[in-house]
């Protein structure tokens, strides 16, 4: 059966560990209201976008199930606390993508490859092999997502580079020298919002799906070089 509609699913996976409290988490809380406002002016794009938000600290929680943004009345506010379990985040988003895409198919929808914006300000507190294993499982399924990581605090660039998928299409982003974590996350959320719009617009023009807005000039967050030898101060 041909599809009822062709959708573009986005998952925002956001670190809500204690270090994100204050301005950073406020910026994240603004994503959904801002997106709703912008999509109101772009009805044909709004029909395509499906949006989900997951927060993680010592564990991961689904805060906004994959939805048409018209149906998200009052987005739940994220609060910041606890540790930074990447493994819990990757496991939950993988399970969600599996069940969400199954449900979309069952409802006769077709979809572009899901996109994950992974926003963190710290290093994983799980054992290395544990979060690596969860990440590998996430990006090797049939409906593997595109993953773009943003380090908005003290995250090691080497760690961030490992979270990019596929590596020939996307970059990791990190805080530029001379900018604060709070600037970085503000810009990250703007880039995220513009990229949702650019992706939806792109599909209208026959493009493949998720793209980062090519016209968004970032200052506070910059792409991490893919070079193996990244100088990193301990």
């Amino acid at each position: 059966m041909p599809a009822k509609a062709i959708l573009l699913p986005f998952y925002v996976v956001v670190d809500s560990s204690l270090s994100m409290s204050g301005e950073p988490i406020d910026s994240v809380n603004d994503i959904i209201p801002t997106l709703c406002d912008l999509l109101r002016e772009n009805p044909t794009l709004r029909d395509k976008v499906r949006f989900s938000m997951i927060e993680f600290a010592s564990r991961a929680d689904l805060r906004v199930p994959l939805s048409d943004l018209r149906d998200v009345q009052k987005p739940p506010l994220l609060t910041a606390d606890g540790a930074t379990s990447y493994a819990a985040a990757f496991r939950l988003v993988r399970e969600l993508i599996e069940t969400d895409t199954e449900q979309l198919r069952a409802d006769d929808f077709s979809f572009h490859r899901p996109a994950i914006f992974f926003i963190t300000d710290g290093e994983p507190t799980d054992a290395d092999d544990v979060w690596h294993r969860e990440f590998d499982t996430l990006v090797t399924g049939t409906n593997f997502p595109n993953v773009v990581p943003f380090g908005v605090g003290e995250t090691n660039p080497t760690t961030l580079n490992e979270l990019v998928h596929p590596k020939d299409r996307f970059h990791a982003y990190t805080v530029a020298e001379g900018h604060t974590a709070s600037d970085a996350i503000k810009e990250t959320t703007q880039l995220l919002i513009q990229s949702v719009l650019a992706s939806a617009k792109g599909t209208e023009e026959g493009a493949d799906g998720f793209v980062l807005d090519p016209d968004f000039q970032t200052e506070a967050v910059i792409p991490v070089p893919m070079d193996e030898d990244i100088p990193w101060k301990d």
Partner: peptide
């Protein structure tokens, strides 16, 4: 894919 799989578009 008859519109069933992940959608791509090149022509």
């Amino acid at each position: 894919d008859g519109g069933k799989k992940v959608v791509t578009g090149t022509t």
